[in-house]
Design a protein around this nucleic acid. Structure first.
Lengths: 243, 243
DNA sequence: CGGACACTTCGGTGGGCGCCGAAGTGTCCG
DNA sequence: CGGACACTTCGGCGCCCACCGAAGTGTCCG
């Protein structure tokens, strides 16, 4: 209990919960963990510690807090502690907070290798469970241009869009409370791209059907020749838009 | 500069910006300010200080940080400092953070007066610039039921919805980057209701045409007899759904 | 079985920051 | 002009917490 609470007119309630949640994100190391985990995969505690440049003991304490706060879920396997974002809501929250940050907060690449990784990420990457980067934008634009996705009055698939997913053999799980389509703001393109159940299904199908493959151990993806063919046939996407 | 930065493999960048932004929200007093300002109006520094139960000097420092961080804008008028949320994006961010917080974080009302204020807020209130509470839900449900708003494949107005707004004489400002329709998660009903440009226009029209009026100095609104008539005629909303 | 390894727990250290009251600045009003 | 008022600045206090290394626990593997 803090001093000022005694006898003050303070209203405890919603604000303390909000502050506690924000407090979990308000540390550079923890924020780094969450951004790394935005790739949607499970990382070990050690990987995150190395990535953030802190001691293992420090990382362990941070992970404990993030798990206790419900932002992460963990899975112990032998001597490893695997950790991932708890759900799509958390991913959305982190995305939106990151999108709010001024773009200038990003520093310029310093090495050639880093510059290459940068441009690969800009071309195409996963954002939690959907596709982002120029690939994500190209897909979203193509869906919109063909009347399958409506962005002018909100953000929703059209009936034609539903049919397109069915005909392409992409199964949309419409159970659960998660919206079928929602906008996710891309941080390189600064434009909305398709997220939600449909975005996740499209990403999963693209990876399963090898329209694109993950490159390196990072979030970046590369469109395959087969992928270019299918994207052209199904959505009229030009290969040049993906480079 | 912190100790660990020297010579570490740390990657400064996006994470520090995210942490800094979250840090602004990670204090109970500042969080309380932002929640109070979610009513969309301008408050003076003194009002916020009283509401949060802190000294004027403390409030002044917090406001300085929130303004410097771009979450608030200020307007000096004589000896008053009026402050409001910077824009709809900030409002959305605060809403979403608050919605993520477990509902149990809310305490039960302690006095009869407070209980009354509670139920008035639950009936109808503003949420930044749109309508929320049971009134907001009723409007959203009515629009959806009549095929004016589509929620099953995302969240967007339909063409019929656009016509409805035009025919009702509610002008939709379609310039700017803000989405026409987006979902805002209600924290009493735990269901999405209409926000975005259309939600704001509907709220403004409802207040201008006196379909509803603000009660007290709070965010709560009450539907007038005239409002009940129009809502029934235009959207088939039963007065009983609003009580 | 023993060593390497991943992670956790603990004690100690330092910095950041939220708080207040007192004093100062600028504005309003009688 | 002088007092009331809203806000700001400043100094000082105390707590919280991120950090590390060392020691401890549990797991894997040769």
């Amino acid at each position: 209990m803090t001093t000022r609470d005694a006898g003050s007119t303070r209203k405890p309630g919603r604000a303390s919960g909000l502050a506690a949640l924000a407090g979990l994100l308000a540390d550079e190391t923890r924020a780094g963990f969450l951004l790394a985990l935005l790739d949607g995969r499970a990382w070990t505690a050690g990987e995150l510690a190395r990535d953030a440049g802190v001691a293992a003991s420090t990382a362990s304490e941070h992970l404990g807090r993030l798990v206790a706060g419900g932002l992460l879920t963990e899975e112990r396997q032998g001597r490893h502690r695997y950790v991932r974002l708890a759900d799509a809501r958390v991913a959305q929250l982190v995305e939106e907070l990151a999108a709010q940050v001024a773009p200038s907060a990003d520093r310029l690449p310093r090495t050639l290798r880093e510059s290459g990784a940068r441009s690969a990420m800009a071309r195409g990457r996963t954002c939690y469970d959907h596709l982002a980067g120029r690939l994500g934008i190209a897909l979203t634009d193509a869906l919109t241009g063909r009347g399958l996705l409506r962005q002018d009055t909100g953000f929703a698939l059209t009936d034609a869009g539903l049919r397109w997913f069915a005909e392409a053999g992409i199964d949309l799980d419409r159970t659960g409370r998660r919206p079928l389509a929602r906008a996710c703001l891309d941080w390189t393109e600064r434009r909305p791209h398709l997220a939600g159940t449909a975005g996740a299904a499209l990403c999963r199908h693209a990876l399963d059907a090898r329209w694109c493959v993950r490159i390196g151990s990072e979030r970046a993806v590369r469109v395959t020749a087969e992928g270019e063919h299918h994207l052209g046939a199904l959505l009229g996407i030009e290969a040049s838009d993906l480079r």
